[in-house]
């Protein structure tokens, strides 16, 4: 999971899904999940996954980034699938997990995160929007600092297998990250107070639909027909 790569794609990757409105993509994802979770048809799930892959390819989304994101939930669902000891239900459970992860990742990879988080946080109190925005912002500041620290640790310790010394060194990196994060929190708070935190700072949200959203509407209709007939 490399959030920096995903964030870079979400902001800079030019494709037709990127041109669709955030609201339309969220509604499309909700519709896909609804159809997916109300079916037991393995052919429908396979068809839906294929359609989502076609959407990914037509948007030139890198499969090397996208597919591992779908694979991880399939492994977790695989534990449930294996425990049930029925291949038909097991495959359906794994298929649902992978397809749901595909749609979530596709929306994330083609939507500017601030817009996506803005729509998602809309039903919650205003303070939640601020909190989620701060977290996302802090994430990249910390990740940069952490990368440098881990590089320094690797240069000092070299490549090594699992050992208690390694766990101890890693824990010290966690501790250092925590202390740095805490100092950063204080500075961020002062900075954001100057920029209007707690004094009417608003999260901007775009609720407008665009003509490019029609293709998502067509896709929903197509998936709906598949759900009904397959």
């Amino acid at each position: 999971m490399n959030l920096a790569t995903l964030d870079n794609l979400a902001v800079n990757h030019r494709c037709w899904l990127q041109r669709c409105s955030t609201l339309a993509k969220v509604l499309f994802a909700a519709a896909v999940l609804t159809f997916l979770l109300t079916t037991m048809s393995l052919p429908f799930i396979a068809g839906l996954a294929a359609l989502l892959l076609v959407i990914a390819l037509s948007n030139r989304l890198p499969l090397a980034v996208l597919l591992p994101l779908a694979l991880i939930p399939m492994i977790f669902a695989g534990i449930f699938a294996f425990s049930i000891r029925d291949w038909a239900v097991g495959l359906t459970v794994i298929g649902r997990a992978g397809t749901a992860a595909l749609i979530a990742a596709e929306v994330f990879m083609t939507t500017v995160p601030v817009h996506l988080l803005g729509v998602i946080s809309a039903p919650m109190p205003e303070i939640f929007g601020e909190l989620i925005y701060f977290t996302y912002r802090s994430l990249f500041l910390l990740a940069g600092s952490l990368d440098n620290t881990l590089k320094a640790v690797r240069l000092r310790r070299g490549k090594e297998k699992f050992s208690f010394a390694r766990v101890r060194a890693t824990a010290q990196v966690y501790g250092m990250t925590l202390v740095r994060a805490w100092d950063m929190a204080g500075r961020q708070y002062d900075l954001l107070r100057l920029r209007g935190l707690g004094q009417g700072l608003k999260i901007s949200r775009d609720w407008h639909l665009r003509s490019s959203d029609l293709i998502l509407l067509a896709a929903i209709l197509l998936i709906g027909m598949g759900w009904y007939f397959v």
């Binding site: 490399n2 990740a143 890693t170």
Partner: peptide, 19 residues
């Protein structure tokens, strides 16, 4: 508020540290 946000960020980056 920033403390909660950075703790969430620390937990997220902690997931990426190989053990």
């Amino acid at each position: 508020l920033p403390a909660v946000a950075v703790m969430a960020a620390v937990a997220l980056v902690a997931m990426n540290i190989p053990l």
